[in-house]
């Protein structure tokens, strides 16, 4: 399955406020549930998310249980220079995933 839907404007004017939307494919298992046999299902959530714009962090977030599966984040930043916006998230199983988008400043 697709790992994430990333929505970043391809072009922006310098100084413009741009909206970034990220929808990540993840089960976000809270760790409080039990399976059909009564065994506890271990917690598996994305616990940290970082968005950096040309190597500078613009959003850093810690996630906790009680977030829905396939979490959606929308936030904004100021378009400064052309370059790459990199999204990195880490889950409880230690899986680190990275997605990248490019933005061009007119």
């Amino acid at each position: 399955m697709a790992r994430a839907l990333i929505n970043v404007p391809k072009i922006a004017r310098k100084g413009e406020l741009v909206e970034i939307r990220v929808l990540i494919n993840h089960v976000m298992e809270p760790g409080h549930r039990r399976d059909a046999m009564g065994a506890a299902i271990p917690r598996d959530i994305i616990h940290s998310f970082v968005c950096s714009y040309n190597d500078e962090d613009v959003l850093r977030a810690d996630f906790f249980p009680a977030m829905s599966a396939n979490p959606y984040l929308a936030f904004s930043t100021i378009a400064r220079d052309s370059g790459s916006i990199v999204f990195t998230w880490t889950d409880d199983q230690g899986v680190v995933q990275t997605e990248r988008a490019t933005i061009t400043i007119l």
């Binding site: 399955m1 697709a2 839907l5 929505n7 929808l23 396939n70 959606y72 929308a74």
Partner: peptide
């Protein structure tokens, strides 16, 4: 379409 989680599956389908 960027907030509809169904598109995670659509993108997978395209692959």
């Amino acid at each position: 379409d960027s907030a509809n989680p169904g598109f995670l599956w659509v993108r997978h389908g395209e692959e």
